[in-house]
């Protein structure tokens, strides 16, 4: 069964037909060519696929394309407006918070949700929040640093 969905994708209205069993991540990657959203596991644990649906971070590998009819979906590709990097992207770059880059889009999208809810997180709060985002390269040290730098709380005692 095909399902027709219309939704806002990175600020633009789009529509598409998708098989009922199509996952959001596959719709984004295969139908819209947005390959910045990755798949790192098949058990909903790694967070490589995190995007925002109606402003909240979700695992796009654990949502059906059919479920996003009428929603707003934002992906890593839409995060930097007019070529200007989002503060998190800038901080990830400056603090070497990525190595192979595979976890990075999900990591940044997840962190962006955190900073919306908690603009000045402590180190512990950042680490707790990132529970659903695995990185095998960085040991998280610089990721935590970058998220806090983006929040403007670097150097403050927070933990």
């Amino acid at each position: 069964m095909d399902v027709q969905v219309s939704f806002t994708l990175n600020g633009k209205m789009v529509s598409a037909a998708a098989g009922s069993a199509t996952l959001l991540v596959d719709l984004l990657r295969n139908r819209f060519g947005l390959t910045g959203t990755h798949v790192g596991c098949d058990t909903s644990q790694c967070g490589a696929c995190v995007v925002h649906v109606d402003g909240a971070s979700v695992k796009s590998c654990t949502m059906l394309a059919a479920q996003i009819d009428g929603c707003a979906v934002d992906t890593i590709e839409g995060l930097s407006g007019n070529g200007e990097l989002h503060p998190l992207q800038q901080a990830f770059h400056e603090h070497h918070a990525l190595q192979c880059g595979f976890c990075t889009p999900g990591m940044i999208m997840s962190a962006a949700d955190l900073l919306k809810r908690n603009p000045r997180p402590s180190e512990l709060e950042v680490r707790d929040w990132l529970e659903g985002n695995m990185c095998r390269c960085t040991g998280y040290h610089n990721i935590v640093k970058a998220v806090r730098a983006a929040a403007g709380v670097m150097g403050e005692e927070g933990s």
Binding site: L34, G36, I76, H96, G101
Partner: peptide, 15 residues
């Protein structure tokens, strides 16, 4: 800071 970062942080890596 790394020159390779830009494509990864903007979702333009090519795996």
């Amino acid at each position: 800071p790394r020159s390779e970062d830009r494509r990864f942080i903007t979702g333009r890596g090519r795996y």
